[in-house]
């Protein structure tokens, strides 16, 4: 039983990372209707900033804060400088532009830091603590806690601030928002900035475990995409629940099904996702969209 809970908590902690990137994807999707493949690239670039700072002796927490600010600026800058150009055009072209950004950003990270993975200092002590007779790692607990705090903060931002209301309005109907005097383009920049900042948090949290390299988040990006789509792309809560589901199912399958083992465990949540989507095409929490002629 104790082992079971440990596996679940570790799964939740992985799920928290997927959730952060998935939330970032949902954020951009709601604002622009685009799947942002550059999300992983932005997160890794910001994490490399934190890495460079820790190398010169800056404490991890401070490095995290700087990385988050840097991520915000990077996201806003990329929206303004690159993605703005593809707005209103063919969506396929815009999605490929995000792929191009992903390639450029990982190329940039590789330019400065090389492709080989580097160790990254953890925000949390590498210990396990006993909670109600179960040993769980502090890292897992810490990751989950940070992500919960971020989620609550985001929820507050969107629900109880003017900025959040404006961003929701833009996501819902950009044209009407513009007509009612909202600065749509600036709000889109803020959306991208927030997404990249979220990515920075996820990157710094996961880097000690994965070791930092330009391709560090490639796999996480795939999981996050799966979570975002499974949750219904317009639902932040859905994305988080789906991410937790994927993290836990994957870990449980790896731990308990001998046939699955460590190498095949990634297949389990994906097959589950396929089954769920075939039964429920709009995703777990998505709204059903009726197409009218």
């Amino acid at each position: 039983m104790s082992y079971f809970i440990q596996v679940v908590v570790d799964g939740l902690s992985n799920g928290a990372i997927y959730a952060a990137i998935a939330l970032a994807i949902v954020l951009v999707y709601r604002a622009t209707g685009l799947i942002n493949f550059a999300q992983g690239g932005m997160a890794v670039t910001a994490t490399f900033v934190a890495y460079a700072l820790t190398r010169v002796g800056v404490p991890v927490l401070l490095a995290l804060v700087v990385a988050v600010v840097f991520g915000f600026l990077l996201g806003a800058l990329l929206e303004r400088g690159v993605m703005r150009h593809f707005e209103g055009g063919d969506p396929d072209t815009a999605v490929v532009a995000t792929i191009a950004l992903l390639v450029v950003l990982s190329g940039l990270s590789a330019y400065f830091f090389g492709y080989e993975p580097h160790p990254f200092p953890s925000l949390f002590p590498n210990r396990t603590i006993e909670v109600l007779g179960v040993f769980v790692s502090l890292r897992s607990i810490g990751t989950i806690t940070v992500l919960l705090v971020v989620m609550i903060a985001l929820q507050l931002l969107f629900r109880s601030t003017k900025l959040g209301l404006a961003m929701r309005a833009v996501a819902d109907n950009p044209r009407s928002s513009a007509l009612s005097g909202l600065p749509v383009s600036r709000l889109l920049m803020i959306g991208w900035g927030l997404a990249a900042a979220l990515g920075a948090i996820a990157g710094v949290l996961v880097a000690p475990q994965l070791f930092i390299s330009p391709g560090m988040l490639d796999f996480v990006l795939v999981y996050a995409l799966a979570s975002a789509i499974l949750g219904g792309l317009d639902s932040p809560i859905g994305a988080v629940v789906a991410a937790a589901f994927i993290g836990v199912v994957e870990n449980l399958a790896g731990a308990y099904l001998d046939f699955i083992g460590d190498d095949l465990k990634i297949a389990v949540p994906f097959i589950a996702v396929i089954v769920i989507l075939v039964v429920r095409p709009q995703g777990l929490f998505g709204r059903k969209v009726t197409v009218r002629v």
Binding site: F86, D90, T93, V96, A100, V103, V104, A110
Partner: peptide
């Protein structure tokens, strides 16, 4: 050692000029 960077930049450039 800059293959990715150059390919990505070319990709972006083509998208900009010829969407």
């Amino acid at each position: 050692s800059r293959t990715a960077l150059i390919s990505g930049a070319v990709l972006l450039a083509v998208l900009f000029l010829l969407p």
